[in-house]
Amino acid sequence: MSTTATSGPAAAAAPRGPKPRRLSVARIGLYGFLIISALFFLVPLYIMVVTSLKTMPEIRQGHLFGLPETWTVQPWIDAWMHACTGRDCNGLSPGFWNSVKITVPSVFISIVIASINGYALSFWRYRGANLFFGLLVFGAFVPYQVVIYPLIIALREVHLFSTLWGIIIVHTIFGMPILTILYRNYYAAIPSELFKAARIDGAGFWQIFVRIMLPMSVPITIVAIILQVTGIWNDFLFGVIFAGRNNWPMTVQLNNIVNTTTGTRTYNVDMAATIITAAVPLIIYFISGRWFVRGIAAGAVKG
């Protein structure tokens, strides 16, 4: 599905709209709209970057769009190591490592569980399995607020509230509906002859899963990893409630740095911290390209 930048008969067959005429007024208007729209999306990123490289006196002069007169990377260093949230002045770095500690196990566990779910739902439909699946599909639409308080109480009962494992469990729970749907739909498209042949050869539940299904699951697993890493890294609500102060992820610390500072606000440090927090998902986005879009589309088509 890769389209070349050149037009004419050599261009890929992907675009299906009415055939464009040569460079006409309409064509110029079309590009004008697309470019102005691109600017609307790009300007905030540009402003974030230039603001983070300016000194505070220069920011107070108020040239929002101007390039820095004196370039400085000090705000970036401050944001990473010295910015304050309340009493602690260690910058974003502890939050970054907390986010890593939360994201890696959450992504791994949620994907393992969801792939087994999808596999069982596609090939081993036991009595009642569809009921559980129906509940998960329903769960994909339920606002988090509806089930958050019972979860707080339940985790408190087992002493996992405000712990690293608590937040990992919560991410696993809320990732399950969408990931299970993703894997189920993927496995449902695999020819059942493959499964039946393996059964005749005497392979069992786990053997078929590990030897046949897993090796075939690479594409969907890439989509799932992208979906989960960006989703969990960007999470704020669960982090602030379930992780506990010592495990607060980066998004929570970022918000604290920016929104709860006492005294003068250092906008350049704020913007540097914002970019650093956005960096991980952005890098994943730009590397993964079309896979990312596929993940969104898969995530959007629930059920």
Binding site: A5, F236, T251, A278, P281, Y285, G289
Partner: peptide
């Protein structure tokens, strides 16, 4: 409409969605 630089434009239009809503809000 068979435009040039479709992939580049698509990346530009879509990147805000990759970021946290916290980031969007603060920007």
């Amino acid at each position: 409409q068979e435009i040039r630089q479709e992939d580049l434009l698509r990346s530009i239009y879509l990147y805000p969605f990759a970021m946290s809503l916290i980031v969007t809000g603060l920007v």
